[in-house]
């Protein structure tokens, strides 16, 4: 990190824990289900609806209650919506690419569109976890039915047993057409999920 610091760089404010009391009042149902635009509209994003279902677990295998989870992903054609892609023809105007769930229990069910593959990458969802006891940890979750996993540079940077911890398992389809993927995210200890350093990288 030290090598990146110049005299023009301001010292960053310390990240701090979200604590146990992130206001449930700030929940936004539209950020908890980005598979649709709004329940009152028939227009909707392109692609395969999916449910990413999982549990966030602590060092003792207990659910990490009160965690704040954020999801960031590309659309069904693999395009991330950023200022750099503002005029991209494959942007989906009906897809809002950022989700947030405050989970009371530690279990979550995130409704979205299955992301497409971005150039050079396997389809994935970036997961940020804020919770009491920690500040912020980040990882990416993949899908077990994607051949592109074999050549993904992030997965490829991990040993095989570690890769498996980031790959969600396909678990059927709901009656209303959502493909279900399941994964456990283990914050600490036995079976710990690999997390990534977006400051040092």
């Amino acid at each position: 990190m030290a090598a990146d610091v110049t005299e023009n760089t301001l010292p960053p404010t310390n990240e701090d824990t979200v604590g146990p009391y992130f206001p449930i009042y700030f929940e936004d149902p539209e950020l908890m289900d980005i598979s649709r635009v709004h329940h009152g509209l028939v227009v909707k994003p392109e692609g395969t609806p999916m449910i990413l279902r999982g549990r966030v677990l602590d060092r003792h295998g207990d659910l990490a209650n009160g965690a704040l989870l954020e999801f960031w992903q590309a659309n069904a054609k693999g395009i991330y919506d950023t200022p750099d892609t503002a005029n991209h023809p494959d942007l989906d105007p009906w897809f809002h690419w950022y989700g947030r769930i405050r989970t009371a229990s530690g279990a979550f069910e995130f409704k979205s569109i299955k992301p497409g593959a971005t150039a050079g990458r396997a389809p994935c969802v970036t997961l940020t976890i804020f919770s009491d006891g920690i500040s912020r940890i980040v990882t990416q979750l993949f899908f077990d039915d994607e051949p592109a996993n074999a050549s993904d540079p992030l997965l490829g940077a991990l040993p095989a047993d570690e890769q498996a911890k980031l790959i969600a398992r396909h678990d059927g389809r709901t009656r209303d057409g959502y493909e279900v993927y399941v994964i456990d995210v283990i914050m600490a200890g036995e079976g710990e999920t690999p997390f990534f350093d977006d400051f040092a990288s």
Binding site: T17, R59, H60, L154, M187, F195, F196, A200, S201
Partner: peptide, 17 residues
Amino acid sequence: SDQRTPRQRLRLIPEAA
């Protein structure tokens, strides 16, 4: 914090990702 802090070092992100 003891229950939820990852024990492994955070991994570096390859530039391609």
